[in-house]
Simulated assay, not measured.
Amino acid sequence: MPLDETARGVYVIAPTPFHADGRIDEASTDRMTDAFLEAGCDGMTILGVMGEAPKLDQAEALDLSKRIIRRAARANVIVGVTAPGFAAMRALARGVMEAGAAGVMIAPPPSLRTDDAVAAYFRQAVEAIGEDIPWVLQDYPQLFQVQMTPGIIRRIIAECPSCVMLKHEDWPGLEKISALRGFQAEGSMRRISILCGNGGIFLDFEMERGADGAMTGYAFPDMLVDLVRLSAAGERDAAHDLFDAHLPLIRYELQPGIGLAVRKHVLRRRGIIASDAQRKPGSALSAKAVQEVEYLLARVGRHDPRARLAPL
C-alpha cells in the first residue's frame, strides 16, 4: 500500500549484504528480509546511509530494491533516493515505485544554508519525482549538515502535500517532536508520521513525546518492535527496562565510522547475513572491538535471551 501519514511501528533500516569480494549477496538479502519481517517489523527502509547506497551503481540499486520489494510483498518498503542530481533521483524513484515500493526517502544536500533554500530544494525534488509519490523527509543534521527547525519542517509539509513522514534524527531532538505535535494539535500543521532513527538511542522517550515508531537499523529490530509495542500500550516501565538492557550495545553500535561494522557483525552472529563485509571503502572491527561487542552481547543476554549467542 502507498505510504501515508498513518504509518507507525518499526521500519527497519536494512544494510546491504555483500560477499567478501564486494558482490551483493542475494541469498543473505533474502534471508535478511525474511528475518526482519518475522521479527515483526512493519516495513523496511533500504538504500539509506547504513545501506551503503553511494557504493551501488544505478542498476544495482534498482535491482536490489526490486528483489527486496518482491520478497517483502506483505510489508511496506521505503527506498532512499537521495542523489546529487534530480535526474538520478527521479529515475530511481519512478523505478522502485513501479516495482511496488510504498514510498521514497529524500535527504537535503549539505550545501543548503537558509530556510528558503531548504524549502525550494524539496519543492524541486517533488517536481522531479512526481507529486504522486509519497515521500519521507530525512532530518539528520549530524550527517547532512542542514539544520531544519520545526518551523521549516512545517513549511515543507505545507508546501509539499506528498510528504507524509518525517525520519527524525536530530540530536537532541525531543523538543522538536513536541513542537511538531504541538503544531498539529493547534491546527497549524497537518498530521504526518514521525519515525525515529539514530540507532534508537532516544527511542524510549521519543515514543512518549509523540513519535509513531522507529526507522533505524539496530541489530535487534525485534527488540525495537517490542519497545514500540510496550510504549504504545502505556507499559512505560516495561518499555524502559527493555531499552535499558540494550542501551550499552545501542550506544556502542552508534559510534561514527564503525557503527555499520558493529551492526553487520551482530547480524552475522545472529545468522541473518552470511558475512559482515562492506563494499570498499569500508571499515572493519579490530580484534579488540570484536571482544568488546561480544562482551556487550553477553551482558544483554542476561536480560534478553535473543542476545544469548553461541561463543565465537
Rank of each mutant, 00 (worst) to 15 (best):
L247I: 13
A179G: 09
I258Q: 10
I152K: 08
H265T: 12
A83D: 08
G48T: 03
D244L: 14
G95T: 04
L56V: 01
G103L: 12
I177V: 09
S275D: 15
R70M: 03
L249D: 08
P281T: 01
V164F: 12
T149N: 07
R279Y: 04
L92E: 04
E169G: 05
L37P: 08
C163W: 10
R8M: 06
L56W: 04
R229V: 09
E253Y: 03
G40S: 07
Q184Y: 12
M44T: 02
A245V: 01
V293K: 00
A232R: 15
L296K: 06
S111D: 10
L260P: 09
K55D: 02
P305Y: 02
T216S: 14
A20V: 13
P15H: 09
S231V: 05
E208V: 10
R71Y: 07
D42H: 11
Y140S: 04
R123W: 05
P141C: 04
R70C: 03
A75H: 09
E60N: 02
M223I: 13
D63K: 15
L247Y: 15
S231I: 01
M97I: 09
I69Q: 02
E52C: 03
G103R: 07
K167G: 06
R191N: 11
F36A: 07
V49L: 09
E294Q: 10
K280T: 14
V126Q: 11
G100C: 00
H19L: 11
A91H: 12
D276G: 11
I69E: 01
C163K: 05
Y121F: 13
G187Q: 10
T149K: 07
A287N: 02
S275V: 00
V12W: 07
A101D: 00
P54F: 00
A158G: 06
R71S: 12
E26N: 07
K66E: 10
T45W: 09
A239V: 06
P108H: 13
V225E: 05
M215W: 04
S286T: 13
T29G: 11
D304T: 08
R94F: 02
I129D: 09
V293N: 05
L254H: 15
A310W: 04
L92T: 00
I133W: 01
V118G: 02
P141T: 00
A87M: 10
A232D: 14
V262H: 11
K167L: 11
A261S: 13
L3H: 01
T82H: 03
E60A: 05
G234Y: 02
P110L: 05
P311V: 01
L285T: 00
N198K: 14
Q278H: 10
